[in-house]
Write a protein that binds this DNA or RNA. Structure first.
Lengths: 343, 343
DNA sequence: TTGAAAGCGCTAACAG
DNA sequence: CTGTTAGCGCTTTCAA
């Protein structure tokens, strides 16, 4: 009312209204908005002005129908609540915005049924999909990929565009670091059984251990959470590891907490290192030594790969995009001073 | 191929295909899906069976056009990177899923321009909007609300459905707690200038201080982040508060960190309490005493309010929904032992 | 209960 | 460069 722009909500302004007011055909209005080059400059400005005056806004849903381009991308994550996803979501959102796309978020809560349902709803609507840390089988993912352009994040699926952090290098650095500190055995607190990243990390750690002459023990699988880390430590019984490499930061934090309750404190009696360098991993005492994953870059990169593809580029399905990591040494790791270690 | 369900991607199966295969009119197929009651039970099952066989999936975009119901809700947050949002997003996503809706997420990165743009794109597409902790003016929000059903979260705007935590009660509890511990002055580390919640918390703390005969000092505004909390403490100069109440947990954590660097440690030399009880607020040492906001319930409640409204309910615009909070006492607060306090 | 027909708002040939 | 004409896939009167 203040602006005199008052209008009934029941019917929105269409290109027809603008066309009538501008004295041109609807298709011209449409062109003026979708391909500015293809219309007389003067007419175009006039149309834009009138559209502005009328308060016209294009209906993306309507244009999605004939073109098949909805301007939406889906990002499906297993657990929004996990801090790893925050930077990923931000990175993805940023790239999406830059590309003129809108992000649809699906939180599957680690539930396969919810994931299936989400995909069911989202696939017909979006132009592309990013699956982060999906727990589904390669085959299932390929099926989805066959219906829509897709990129998998934090995972490799042959035949599907993949992007992830350099888990191998990361674990190698962990082993080197711990080895340099004099540790001889590393206990790996595993992640979920179905996690691809867990498999990678475990294998890489084993390989590095072999190479550096360190013993590696696996404990798990565990939930990729603080609770999972605590449970893992408790499952250790009387065993007293001097060095722990956890599947991720949450597990590492959980481990330190459980250890703390048993009065064994890092870095003095035990060294623990996480993975991902999530927000908050440096809040605790001691601040966690961890491998920094390029989370933001992963999210950003994933949608960029998708957009490239949507822009007509060939799908990059052969070589996955592997992003560099780096070891962030903080206070949770220190020289091995194992009490029952005789020298 | 394995399933024999192979199909070209270029053209999807429509109700026409199903109609033809089932020997009925397209409209009947449509009815069979949208209003099952209005079609002969047998025909309905047959249609569903055939649709299944053909791999038909309804195109939500196409049905959104004639009905105006896109099945999508927008959640706009100021900073996905802030851990407060994780449970909010989860709660909202859960309720949306239960209501058969899909969530569109917009991260404005605290940038007004991005927020404007996001709204521009999203408003025409979604059926309803949730604005979390928006920094816009009441008037601006009302304008948006006039275009689409909307609920504001963590804020009150008269004339717009609002839902938020009981900031007042929360701050009152903070003051009581600190008062009981013998503190006489509370330094409030404020949030952003434009934050409604900050205003509420500050006022409530002042009121409680008045009531309980505690002195309250305000320091800020500050960014609602760890960095903001550190900066706030640094801005204090030589002043040595015995009790700090922070705008939120991040600020509290930042404050403790800065204080720690000056060798003043909680809870011995200073008590600090946060707000929200975000994930990770108990990771540190000491674990943070804080006011637990019902974050998940806020997200869930917000979409429920929206769905109620979309379902034809009257917009609840008069009395805001205020969710209960509780004080979580952990280790960052303790009895006042102010060195320069003479008794 | 079902079919026929007319759109939802926009785009995309195809002529002119 | 612009107008005309069909649709995109689904819903919804209106008759039958």
């Amino acid at each position: 009312m203040a602006d005199g722009e008052q209008q009934r909500a029941d019917r929105s302004i269409t290109i027809y209204d603008v066309a009538r007011a501008a004295g041109v055909a609807p298709s011209t209005v449409s062109r003026a908005f979708s391909r500015p080059g293809r219309v007389n400059a003067e007419t175009a400005t006039r149309i834009h002005r009138i559209a502005e005056e009328l308060g016209y806004r294009r209906n993306p849903l309507a244009s999605a129908l004939p073109t098949g381009r909805s301007g939406m991308l889906a990002l499906v994550v297993t657990d929004v609540t996990n801090p790893v996803y925050a930077p990923i979501i931000r990175g993805a959102g940023l790239a999406a915005q830059e590309g003129g796309y809108t992000l649809l978020l699906h939180d599957t809560r680690e539930d396969p049924e919810t994931e299936r349902e989400a995909l069911e709803r989202t696939v017909p609507v979006v132009e592309g999909i990013i699956m982060a840390s999906s727990r589904r089988s390669d085959a299932a993912l390929r099926t989805v990929a066959s219906r829509r352009p897709m990129v998998v994040l934090n995972r490799a699926v042959s035949g599907v565009t993949s992007i992830f952090a350099d888990n191998q290098r990361g674990m190698r650095r962990v082993a080197e670091h711990l080895g340099e500190l004099g540790h001889e055995t590393i206990h790996y607190l595993a992640g979920p059984e179905t996690s691809w990243a867990d498999g990678m990390r475990w294998q890489a750690l084993q390989a590095a251990g072999m190479d550096l002459e360190l013993k590696i023990r696996r404990v798990g699988p565990n939930a990729p959470t603080v609770a999972g880390g605590m449970a893992a430590v408790e499952s250790l019984g009387d065993a007293r590891p001097t060095a722990i490499s956890a599947y991720n930061d949450l597990v590492a934090i959980g481990a330190m907490r459980a250890l703390g309750q048993m009065r064994v404190v890092a870095p003095d009696e035990v060294s623990v290192v996480g993975f991902d360098n999530i927000f908050g991993s440096d809040f605790g005492t001691p601040a966690l030594t961890t491998v920094a994953s390029p989370l933001h870059a992963m999210g950003k990169g994933a949608v960029e790969l998708l957009l490239e593809r949507l822009g007509g580029g060939a799908p990059r399905t052969d070589d996955p995009v592997v992003l560099p990591v780096r070891l962030v040494v903080r206070d949770s790791t220190g020289p091995c001073r194992e009490p029952h270690r005789r020298r």
